[in-house]
Simulated scan of single mutants.
Amino acid sequence: MNPYESLSPRSFWRTAVAEPEPTAIGDLWTPKFSLGQDDPVLTAGSCFARHIGRALLDQGMNWRDAEPAPPGLTEAERQARHYGVFSFRTGNIYTAAALLQWLSWAYGEAAPPDEVWSEGGRFFDPFRPSVEPEGYDSAEATLAARRATLAAMRGALADARCLIFTLGLTEAWQNRADGTVYPACPGTVRGTFDTERHAFCNFTFAEVYRDLSAAVELARAANPQLRVLLTVSPVPLTATATGGHALTATTYSKSVLRAVAGQLAQEHDHIDYFPAYEIITGFPFKAAFFEPNLRTVTPEGVAFVMRQFFGALAQRPAEPRRDRGAAPAHGEDFWCDDAVLDYYNAG
């Protein structure tokens, strides 16, 4: 007997991917730890992460909104001001460096900068410029609102069971003087771009691994029971500042993020990885889960991802099958040495 004879059909390309209808492809994730309906769950990350909190609520799970909207706002006003989007009003956190930055500020590991942008007599937070679209009355009110978010982060993380964090990008813009990371290039959403003050960076595997590891350690120092579930956003880059092609830049960015998430999940029992990225972008699905712009994930795509998520949480891993019966490889697979492994596929 060799190791492939004891594998289940999910481990073989033919039975797991090629033969099923795309929407019947399943068993993509075996959760490392359980999540009960009463377990407090937090969500943060890139734009794709905004779907997760709502899906958790719809399933009756305990998604924590650490900064609920004040009374009197319409649904449109709540969404515009980023209430109920993530567990905290940080806006999108695209990079591991930005997550570490927010947690470092929350836990006093670093002092938040006093930088505030002003436009038309209104004031905006450079580190979440979209959160308050009409701005604040003063610089102090802007910084006070940020302090409130940092306090909400500390409070929610203190008793959370799980933080679901969605990695989005490796590209970012930094302040040359102090190294702080912006969620968007100054001069795009808000602010003014200054080549003397603002520098582009494209984080490497080592840098993302370092920052994400440090962020998890900070959160778990405050709450040793915290589990972290990582995902990678399937949404491609809107644009790349590398000067390269947007397709190859997207491939680099997502490959690095996926590799870091997988590495950390292998190394730590308290970190897991959920394959939302593969579910949406995997070529068996033929981009069916994208809108015509090939960026926006369709509602059907989001629903498919979340069915995989909740289905895996509800099921135990299947027992491996030990019988054998598939025919040897033919056709194009004849030229691939590893195609012989399909012979041991019991499916």
Results as ranks from 00 to 15, higher is better:
M1C: 10
M1P: 06
M1D: 11
N2C: 09
P3Q: 12
E5A: 12
S6A: 13
L7K: 12
P9V: 04
S11V: 00
T15L: 09
A18S: 14
I25W: 03
T30W: 00
P31T: 01
P40W: 00
V41K: 01
L42Q: 02
T43M: 07
G45T: 09
I52Y: 08
L56P: 02
D58F: 05
D58P: 01
Q59Y: 10
M61E: 05
R64L: 13
D65P: 03
E67R: 11
A69V: 00
E75S: 11
A76V: 10
E77N: 08
R78C: 14
R78Y: 08
H82N: 09
V85N: 10
R89F: 04
T90L: 08
T90F: 11
T90C: 07
A96N: 06
L99N: 08
S104F: 07
V116C: 09
G120M: 06
G121S: 08
R122C: 11
D125E: 06
F127A: 11
P129S: 15
P129E: 12
V131L: 11
P133H: 10
G135V: 05
G135W: 02
A141L: 07
A151N: 10
A151R: 15
A152D: 08
A152Q: 00
M153S: 06
A156N: 05
R161A: 14
T166H: 06
G168S: 03
L169V: 00
T170W: 07
T170P: 06
W173G: 03
A177S: 13
T180N: 11
R190I: 06
H198L: 11
A199F: 09
F200E: 14
F203D: 14
E207A: 14
E207L: 07
Y209M: 06
L212K: 04
L212S: 04
L212D: 03
S213W: 07
L218R: 15
P224I: 02
P224R: 10
P224G: 04
L226E: 05
L226A: 04
L226F: 01
L226D: 05
P234R: 09
A239V: 15
A241H: 14
G243P: 07
L247N: 12
T248G: 05
T251Q: 15
T251W: 09
S253L: 03
V256R: 00
V256C: 06
V256S: 04
R258F: 06
G262E: 13
G262W: 08
Q263F: 12
D272I: 04
Y273G: 01
P275I: 08
T281A: 15
T281F: 00
T281L: 12
P284N: 09
K286W: 00
A288N: 12
F289G: 02
N293T: 11
N293G: 12
T296S: 13
Q308L: 05
Q308Y: 01
Q315I: 01
Q315G: 04
R316T: 09
R316K: 14
E319A: 15
E319G: 03
R324Q: 13
R324W: 07
A327N: 08
G331S: 10
W335K: 13
D338H: 13
D338Q: 14
V340W: 15
L341F: 12
L341K: 15
Y344Q: 02
